[in-house]
Every structure is written in C-alpha cells, then in structure tokens.
C-alpha cells in the first residue's frame, strides 16, 4: 500500500515528528511504500542541516535523512512555508528537497492513505 505522511510540526517542540518517523519506519518494515513525507507549517524545521541536538538526544533531522538514504523515501519541504521560516537550499539537510504544495495534493491523489501528524 502507498502511504503518504504529512508532518505539520517542527522537531523537538512537539512529539509529532517522532511519532511520524516511528510510523514511517514501521510501515516500511511491514512492506508498505511511504509515497512521500511532506513537511508543512513548522514541520519544515525538520529539514535544516544546522540542527545539532545534545549527544544523548536523538537526531531527528538525520533520522529523516536516513529514510531517504536507505529506503529512497521522498522528503519534500513546502517552499512557501520554508521561506517564511528561513529554510532555503543553503541550509537544507541532505535527503530533503524543496518543492510546492502541489506535491502534497499529488500525494493525496496518488497515495492510498494520507496520515497527518501535528499538534
């Protein structure tokens, strides 16, 4: 099954990015396809390479990047939401790409399910 995921909150402030990542991992392990993870609202903050959590904490940005590297998951950051919040190509973490809201609508059309994680 093709599952699309929408992440509406930034990392660390809310649990939604953690829950979304755990969900994606479990879906892939169960043999489903994560059609795309779309980052919207403050969710775009999941994509900055300037993130440096303390060593004993999880690295949320790198965790997302590993989904792209190991499983080819398409990680898309909304351009309008990103520009509002200062996320641009220059500070975009590896594995993510910046694109338009049309990518979210396309996910809604192409995927069998859309699961939203927010606050």
């Amino acid at each position: 099954m093709k599952i699309a995921v929408l992440v509406n909150e930034g990392p660390y402030q809310h649990q939604s990015a953690d829950t979304a990542w755990n969900f994606c991992k479990a879906a892939i392990e169960a043999g489903h396809e994560i059609q795309r993870v779309f980052f919207y609202h403050d969710g775009v903050n999941n994509a900055t390479k300037l993130t440096e959590p303390p060593q004993d904490d999880r690295h949320i940005v790198n965790r997302w990047a590993s989904l792209n590297k190991e499983h080819g998951v398409d990680l898309v950051v909304c351009v309008a939401a990103a520009m509002r919040r200062g996320i641009v190509e220059a500070n975009l973490a590896e594995g993510f790409r910046i694109s338009g809201l049309g990518q979210l609508v396309e996910s809604g059309i192409q995927a069998d399910r859309v699961v939203t994680f927010g606050d």
Partner: peptide, 16 residues
C-alpha cells in the same frame, strides 16, 4: 498560522 496555511493548500488543490 494553521487557518492561513490551510487556505493556501485549498487554493492549490483547486488547481488539480
């Protein structure tokens, strides 16, 4: 910001 950014998605969806 949810209401405003939700409206932005609505407008894009209309184009599809």
């Amino acid at each position: 910001v949810y209401a405003l950014e939700s409206l932005e998605v609505v407008l894009i969806t209309a184009a599809f």
